[in-house]
Amino acid sequence: MNTSKQYPAEKSVIVTGANSGMGRATALRFAAEGWHVIAIDVAPSTHDADENITPAVADISNEMVLSAAVGRVLEGKPRLAAVVNAAGVFPTSSLDSYDADLYRRIFDINVLGTLNVARVGAKHIGPDNGGTMVFFASVDAFAVSRNQLLYSASKAAVVSITRSLAIELAESRITVNAIAPGWVDTEGTRKGGRIEAAISGIPLKRAASVEEIAGWAWKLACEPSYITGETVCIAGGIFMR
């Protein structure tokens, strides 16, 4: 008797940072659209009730652990066709406050993690099937904020990685793009009243919802497109100021 789970989805997607905020919203959007979602996070899953989501615990800064986790959960599942790297950290830093440990934490997750997710994803997408990658950068890659010295630099690196990999993976028919959110209404940005203080400086006078950001990740990953190597700012006009 075959007791293996049958997935109605024809394609799988990796979504990292899938337990909260924009990553969670993105995982739920893909699942709602009928994709099989590999939901990766460093903590145990919050998606156990969704039949279209297979959780996996992995630290994206450790390629060996990430590769093993993805290989394990992809076995017997629909082919991997898309990768969305939403995982990231944004502790404050300045010239006075940063240290080597903080530098390594931010760059290991935001930059090395992006590279690891891309390499693991590209191996499973393969050189012939084609696919898409979407990385999460930030408006801070273009319009820097006070006390975000290392975070801004790490997200500028993600923008550069996006361009480089778009060229490198074009022969495999993999498009690579990024989104650069501005202020988004998440648990993290609500802490300490940060988001309320920022809204007055946003031309549209509101923060984005996590669902709006997830919609753009979905659009870049799933709609047929001639776009690759680009970073889309989703920031309510704040980048122009």
Rank of each mutant, 00 (worst) to 15 (best):
A157E: 10
Q148S: 11
D140N: 15
T114Y: 05
A143I: 10
E63T: 08
P44H: 02
V57K: 08
A82R: 12
G76N: 04
A100E: 14
A122C: 07
G121D: 09
S154L: 07
T114S: 15
V134G: 09
W35H: 09
N62V: 03
S61Q: 05
A141R: 11
A166S: 15
S61N: 02
N116H: 14
N52L: 07
R119N: 10
V70E: 03
V57Y: 01
R105N: 13
L66N: 04
A137Y: 09
G113H: 08
A49K: 10
E75A: 13
V57D: 00
D108Y: 07
V84N: 02
Y151N: 11
D140T: 15
R79G: 10
I161P: 05
Q148L: 13
S94I: 02
G126Q: 10
N129K: 14
G71W: 01
G130V: 12
L74W: 05
V158W: 09
D128P: 00
A87N: 04
T114P: 05
P55V: 03
D99R: 09
T46E: 08
A100P: 00
F135G: 08
S164V: 12
R119S: 08
S94H: 03
L95N: 07
D108M: 07
N85L: 01
A68K: 11
A166H: 05
